[in-house]
Amino acid sequence: MTGSPYRLSAPDDGLAALHPRLRTYFGAVPPGHVGRGTGVFSVVGTPRRWLWPLLAVFARDGVMFPVWEHDVPFTVENRPVQVRRGRPGTDPGRQARPAVRAHRTFHFANGDRTMVDAITAEPEGLVDHLGHRGRVSALLAVEVPVTGPDAGALRLVSTRVTVHALGREWSLPVVIAPRVELTERFDDDADEQRVSLTLSAPVIGTLYRYEGAFRYAVVPDDV
C-alpha cells in the first residue's frame, strides 16, 4: 500500500482529532482501489476579469481557470502514485515519494476542465505540486482544529511557494508569494464533505477561489 503523504508528513498524533469520515479521504488508498467523489461547487474562479488572461496561462497546465461560475458540478478522483522530484542523474535527493494525485473535473457551462495536482510528503513537510508538470509547488502547514466550527476539519495553509524553472527551484519572496488556504470538513447533518479553497496575494487580495460539497468513497478501480 502506498502510504498517505498526509500521515507521513504529520506528527504521530497530528491527525488524531480529524473527523472519522475525513480519515478515509486523507488516508492511504489500498492497492486496486481509487478514491472517487461527486458534488457541486457553489462558486469557482474570480469575478475580477482583468485576472483572466493570467489564469488562462495556468489553465494550460490544469491549475486554475479563467471563469466565474456558480453551481458547478464536479468529480474528484484520488490515486496513490509514486513521484520523483529533482533532475535525473544530478540530484542525490531524487527518489520516489508516496503521493496522491488528484484530478478534479469541473463541468463548466462551456465544457469540462480538469485541475491536476499531486501531494507528496517531503523532508520539510507536505508539498502540493500543481498542474500536469508540477512547476509550481506549495509547502503546506497542517492544522486540525479541536474546537470551534471547524473542529475535526483539516486546514492547510501555504508557507512557501516555489517555481521550477531553468533547471532550478526558485522560492518566491514572501512579499509577492501567493497564499493558499484550504479547509476540508465533514458536515454530519448533510452527510457531505465540504471544501473551501482561497488563493490570495499581498495587496491584491483574493485571486481565485472555489467552495462546495461532495460525497466520497474509496472503491475498486475499474480502469
Rank of each mutant, 00 (worst) to 15 (best):
R36D: 07
V100S: 09
D71F: 03
G205R: 06
D91H: 07
A153H: 00
A59M: 02
R113W: 12
V175Q: 14
S137N: 12
M64W: 08
D187F: 04
V83R: 14
V81C: 08
T2E: 13
V44P: 02
T114W: 09
S9C: 10
P202Q: 10
V144A: 02
G148V: 08
F106N: 05
V67N: 01
D188E: 14
P98E: 13
E69F: 03
H33M: 08
G37V: 11
G27S: 13
A10G: 13
F106K: 07
L55F: 01
L51Q: 06
P11A: 02
D222A: 09
L51D: 02
L166F: 13
R185G: 14
G134P: 11
S42K: 11
R85F: 04
P149F: 03
T183L: 05
P123Y: 07
A17L: 09
T46N: 13
Q193E: 14
R101V: 10
A28S: 14
E169T: 15
D221L: 13
R155P: 04
D191M: 05
P92N: 07
I119Q: 11
H70E: 10
D91N: 11
A121C: 06
R101K: 11
L15Y: 03
D150S: 11
P149K: 09
D128L: 14
R48M: 08
L8N: 01
P220W: 03
I119N: 06
R84Y: 06
R23T: 04
R21H: 09
W52K: 04
V127P: 05
P31L: 07
A165C: 02
M1K: 02
I204W: 06
T147H: 14
F108H: 02
